[in-house]
Design a protein around this nucleic acid. Structure first.
Lengths: 231, 231
DNA sequence: AATATAAGGTGTATTTTTTACACTAAGTAG
DNA sequence: CTACTTAGTGTAAAAAATACACCTTATATT
């Protein structure tokens, strides 16, 4: 009986849908490709997995190489494996998403030469993307829209201290609908995962709002409840 | 600038966690391997993706080859890519799950020679599995346990006509807790996706229960509501 | 025919959660 | 001190979730 693993030319890649929230807009990170195929096109940050590297490790590395950031909450959400998705051969890509806290306008500088630049693009105004990256983005966006309805992951996108109005706007942008202010606040505060701070917003030309912090401890507990179904 | 896709010896595979519900037990389909590595071990049904075959197609094909069944609701749920998960080389596996309707005890006959046999195993009594298949099973099981709390996918596992008690037992098995009969019925009937039939159970030595059918039309509508978040 | 057995089938009161809805308070800018 | 802009708050109604126990019906047994 044959025991040798059959092989064919194939390779894995990682593509990342990296969300950020800035100036009231939901954005994703795109790179401008510097290599064929799709040279000069915009694309999701992604790269090939190395031979001795796990998928999770590759995702972390690639995110790091493109943003300089580490320890980001990142999750694999789908693997795209259509035969002809890459014009040069068989490339199966594992898609991850991440939600980044943008601490002010940070310069993005690719450390690999295969990208000319990396920029934040508002998701409502995306250019045409290389490969099947539009499809990957759509699925990633669907994923977070879905997830946010049962897990308050939105915090990942906000600065450490935020106002309830900022939080609500973020929900509204992700869900693409407007929410009732009083009900939203009631619900969020009821989760018990927000810590009210003794601080207020600064630099606004109107009444400053209270700042809140996200309580990781209590969030972890709530997260556990994902599997409930009543008695 | 280099434009040739780097390659290394690598290959993709599919592994399937195929759930069935039989004799009041939740089971998965396992095969007995006939080839190295892990010859004679039990493993999830899985196989290598072919060169000109998409992942979804490969999953369908493999499920068909191992069960003779087609048109099964199947979903990709995770991709496992640890470097050393396969002793003979780099194999990234894309895991799918399926929920099968077992119409009576059906014979399972592998049509490939790499499996000696295929059998249904109760999930509470699984043998040691080849590769990282235990991990894959766990994650697949978690997936359906999670999903069943917000989508009534349990129907996939039941015969076309079923009683409410059978449905409840299935929920109890998947969620691993007992549910209140009256509340369960109220909830299920309230979904509005069950059609009450004019038929009753047969062959039982006690009062026969009414049979129900699952209404696919209405289910599709309910499924759409997945993304709601109130006003 | 009577009885035992085993599951089928049903209702109500309570609590919790969700929804709808509008005005006053506080700070800033001129 | 006035105008402007956002912050911040409560209540009533409806809907959903929960806790809980008994009678009914078909079959099998004597």
């Amino acid at each position: 009986m044959e025991t040798i693993l059959p092989k064919f030319d194939s390779v894995f890649s990682i593509d990342c849908v990296i969300f950020g929230f800035d100036e009231g807009e939901l954005k994703i990170l795109l790179i401008e490709r510097n290599v064929e195929p799709f040279k000069d096109w915009w694309a999701l940050p992604g790269y090939l997995v190395e031979e001795n590297e796990s998928l999770d490790h590759a995702a972390e590395r690639i995110l790091y190489e493109l943003t300089g950031l580490r320890d980001i909450f990142m999750d694999q959400f789908y693997t795209f494996g259509d035969v002809d998705r890459h014009p040069q051969g068989r490339v199966v890509t594992v898609a991850y998403y991440a939600m980044l806290r943008l601490n002010g306008p940070k310069e993005l500088k690719p450390v690999t030469s295969y990208a000319k630049s990396a920029v934040w693009y508002p998701i409502n105004d995306l250019p045409k993307l290389a490969f099947d990256h539009s499809k990957i983005f759509e699925r990633g966006f669907l994923k977070i829209r879905n997830k946010i309805t049962y897990q308050p992951i939105a915090f990942e996108l906000l600065p450490e201290k935020f106002t309830l109005t900022q939080l609500q706007h973020l929900y509204e942008v992700i869900l693409n609908k407007s929410l009732d202010k009083r009900n939203f606040r009631k619900k969020m505060l009821n989760y018990g995962i927000l810590k009210e701070l003794d601080e207020k917003q600064k630099g606004v030309s109107y009444r400053a709002a209270k700042l809140y912090k996200f309580d990781k401890r209590k969030y972890a507990k709530l997260f556990q409840k994902e599997l409930t179904f009543g008695k």
